[in-house]
Computed example of a mutant assay.
Amino acid sequence: MKMGVLGSVAGKRSSLEPDYRVEVQDGDIELRVYGKLLLASTVVPGGYGDASGLAFRRLAGFIFGRNTGQEKISMTAPVLQRQEGVNISMTAPVLQEKAGDAWRMSFIMPGMYTMETVPRPLDDGIVLEELPPRRVAVLRYTGLHSVRNVEKRTKLLRAWLENEGYRAVSEPRVASYNPPWTIPALRRNEIHIDIER
Rank of each mutant, 00 (worst) to 15 (best):
M3P: 10
R13A: 04
I88T: 02
P110F: 06
P18S: 08
L161W: 10
P110D: 05
T142W: 09
Y141S: 09
E151M: 06
E164T: 09
E129M: 08
W181K: 03
N149P: 06
T76F: 01
A77H: 01
W103E: 02
H145K: 13
Q81N: 01
P18H: 04
R135W: 03
E71R: 14
T42N: 08
S106K: 07
K155Y: 07
N163E: 11
I73V: 11
A55W: 00
L59N: 01
E151D: 11
I126L: 10
M115T: 12
V138Y: 07
R32D: 01
G35Y: 03
R58H: 11
P78T: 00
L59K: 00
G46L: 03
D123N: 13
P45M: 05
P93S: 02
D101V: 06
D50M: 08
E171L: 10
A55D: 05
N178I: 01
I108M: 07
M90Q: 15
S41H: 00
I63W: 04
D19L: 10
I63L: 06
M109D: 04
R167W: 02
T68F: 10
A77N: 00
Q96S: 15
R21T: 15
S15A: 10
S89T: 11
P45D: 13
G111R: 03
R188F: 02
N87T: 09
R134D: 03
S52W: 00
T117L: 13
R82A: 05
L122G: 14
G165I: 05
V43Q: 06
L144M: 14
I195L: 03
A175H: 04
I108V: 13
V24P: 03
D123P: 07
D50C: 04
G69T: 11
G47P: 06
R134L: 07
P172D: 05
M3C: 12
E30M: 03
E162G: 11
R140S: 15
L37G: 02
S106P: 06
G100A: 08
Y48S: 05
G7D: 07
P184H: 08
P180F: 01
K2M: 12
G11Y: 09
Y177V: 08
G69E: 13
R21F: 09
E17K: 15
W160I: 08
A40Y: 09
V22P: 09
P180S: 02
E97W: 12
V9M: 13
A102L: 10
R66I: 12
G69N: 14
E17L: 15
M112A: 09
V5F: 11
G53P: 03
K155R: 11
H192A: 03
L38V: 01
M90K: 14
L157H: 14
A40K: 04
A99V: 06
S41P: 01
D194R: 05
P132K: 14
K36T: 04
V127K: 14
T114V: 08
R167N: 10
V150C: 05
D26T: 06
G27S: 12
M115K: 15
P179I: 01
M115G: 15
Q96K: 14
R158A: 12
M3A: 11
I29S: 05
S15Q: 06
P172V: 01
R21S: 15
V9T: 14
Y48W: 10
G143N: 08
F56H: 00
M90F: 11
Y20G: 06
R153M: 13
G53K: 00
A51E: 00
N189I: 13
G125S: 15
